[in-house]
């Protein structure tokens, strides 16, 4: 329809300056109104997420424990004794992910910022960013097809090496006890999560490392420091809070990851630290995805209640992360 008025001229008439009146006042007001309304609308959305989840979760929260007897997937537990193991499973898988991903990310961040040739660095950064773009369902397929067979010998060794065997005999079961193939345990799930949060942590860490004041670095080198000593003296202290907040961001992502955990983990509803045994843990998000399609009645409400708990948890973690970042911005004087 609008082929004729395609030239870049604005539909509105060009503003004319008139005496005694600021130009484009109406336009200004409308534009400012729209922008402000958009900003406020974001707050409304966030509030709506919390409110709608709360509305649907409320029946489950207030229901008598006996109300959940008919809900098959809750295995006869009441809401809280059902949610606790899920919370634990969510936490432990995320912690494993961070334990693996944070040191790796710091290494990668340093490699890109201080070791790789400048010319290559940006390209290598993109390469890591590509990991972030891969859909999580594909990570799930990859975990089943590639990672599980790969880590199985390693897990077998962890579970049966002389040290573990000695501890089992003299002290008691260790976290590595009782590995059972195939590798569908919380450690595998944690490893997949680690790979998924890696690009998120790396991106932040890399930026922070790149912001290290050049003068600090050169001062250190001028004093005869090796590259590693320079990094320890100048780069790492400067980047510490950045690393912490990046870790929190990664944690927020790991807590909510669904499909990969659903596909690579044999779920269970226990609270323990047997990392290599199947059927011990489950995360909230994967549990929702697993049971939601067949759930009905109060079961749906219980799942939504667990989703609300997850929401509150990630909200808190992200809030803390932002608070750390904000504090750092004030102190460092960078930006």
């Amino acid at each position: 329809m609008a082929v004729t008025d395609s030239p870049p001229s604005e539909p509105e008439a060009p503003p004319k300056v008139r005496a005694g009146r600021a130009p484009g006042r109406l336009g200004n007001r409308v534009f400012q109104g729209i922008s402000t309304a958009s900003g406020i609308f974001i707050l409304v959305i966030l509030a709506a997420v919390a409110i709608f989840l709360l509305v649907r979760a409320w029946p489950a929260v207030t229901a008598a424990p006996s109300a959940f007897e008919d809900v098959g997937f809750m295995l006869g537990r009441d809401l809280w004794s059902w949610v606790w193991p899920l919370l634990f499973g969510t936490a432990i898988s995320s912690v494993i992910a961070l334990v693996v991903a944070v040191p790796l990310s710091i290494g990668i961040g340093l490699f890109i910022s201080h070791y790789a040739p400048r010319r290559l660095a940006q390209g290598l950064g993109y390469l890591i960013d590509l990991l972030a773009a891969i859909p999580s369902v594909i990570f799930g397929l990859w975990g089943i097809q590639w990672l599980q067979p790969l880590v199985s010998p390693l897990f077998t060794w962890l579970s049966t090496n002389p040290a573990t065997a000695w501890l089992e005999e003299n002290v008691g079961p260790t976290i590595f006890s009782g590995y059972q193939a195939p590798a569908r345990n919380i450690l595998t799930a944690g490893l997949v999560l680690a790979i998924m949060v890696l690009p998120i942590i790396t991106a932040t860490v890399r930026e922070v490392f790149l912001q290290t004041p050049r003068l600090h670095e050169e001062a250190s080198l001028a004093l005869g420091a090796t590259r590693w000593e320079m990094i320890r003296q100048a780069v790492l202290p400067f980047g510490r809070s950045g690393v912490i907040s990046a870790t929190m961001l990664g944690l927020g992502r790991a807590l909510g990851e669904t499909m990969a955990v659903l596909m690579v983990l044999s779920p269970g509803y226990l609270i323990n630290f047997f990392l290599l045994q199947p059927g011990q843990h489950q995360s909230i998000a994967a549990n929702i995805a697993s049971h939601f399609p067949e759930a009905s009645g109060i079961g749906v409400d219980a799942l939504i209640a667990s989703g609300l708990i997850l929401f509150v948890m990630t909200f808190g973690v992200n809030l803390v992360a932002r608070w750390i970042i904000a504090r750092r911005a004030e102190f460092s004087g960078a930006n």
Binding site: L53, T258, I288, T314, V317, N318, A326
Partner: peptide, 21 residues
């Protein structure tokens, strides 16, 4: 701050929200 926090909403929670809405 809240936009930043919103970046971290788990995707499954967004799904639950749309569902309940």
């Amino acid at each position: 701050v809240l936009v930043d926090v919103m970046t971290g909403i788990p995707s499954i929670v967004a799904g639950l929200f749309a569902f309940t809405l």
